[in-house]
């Protein structure tokens, strides 16, 4: 598959997963939930801009670069907040474990898709040196 198409394929899945999680909100309304919800929403919107961009000009430009940054850095920030939201929810028995497991699976799935998109992003961007400032270390291996 062409690199741009491959990126679009993975990002569409991430967008769908983000939608599923957002549809489930609110679960346990508090500051942390509000934060990761905002990040999910922002990530979804950034993906849409990338998808539009890939359709119009299937090559790296400033807009796609900026929004890939938002997607990857947002995903990392969102994971940190979600994981601690989950810990506090578990410690306090505020959310049932099935719900927490379901959310965890969806967040991990998003990360997995983003990791799988990385080789195509390297190819699309024209090399490692252009993308390592977008893609955090733990999405690159």
């Amino acid at each position: 598959m062409h690199a741009a198409a491959e990126i679009a394929y993975h990002l569409r899945i991430v967008q769908g997963l983000a939608d599923r999680v957002l549809d489930r909100m609110p679960v346990w309304e508090n500051t942390m939930e509000e934060r990761f919800t905002m990040l999910l929403q922002e990530k979804k919107e950034a993906i849409q801009i990338i998808l539009n961009g890939l359709r119009e000009t299937p090559e790296m430009n400033d807009e796609i670069h900026k929004n890939l940054h938002i997607v990857y850095k947002g995903d990392k920030a969102e994971k940190l907040i979600f994981e601690q939201w989950k810990r506090v929810a578990e410690q306090n028995n505020f959310v049932n474990s099935d719900e927490l497991d379901w959310l965890e699976e969806n967040f991990q799935e998003m990360k997995k898709e983003l990791k799988e998109a990385v080789p195509s992003i390297h190819e699309f961007a024209g090399g490692w040196e252009k993308t390592r400032f977008i893609v955090p270390a733990q999405y690159r291996e």
Binding site: R35, L39, K66, H69, I70, K73, G74, A77, I81
Partner: peptide
């Protein structure tokens, strides 16, 4: 820098 509420790191462009 970062977004002061969500903590998402800002890009050079931003």
């Amino acid at each position: 820098g970062k977004d002061p509420y969500t903590s998402r790191p800002l890009s050079r462009e931003e």
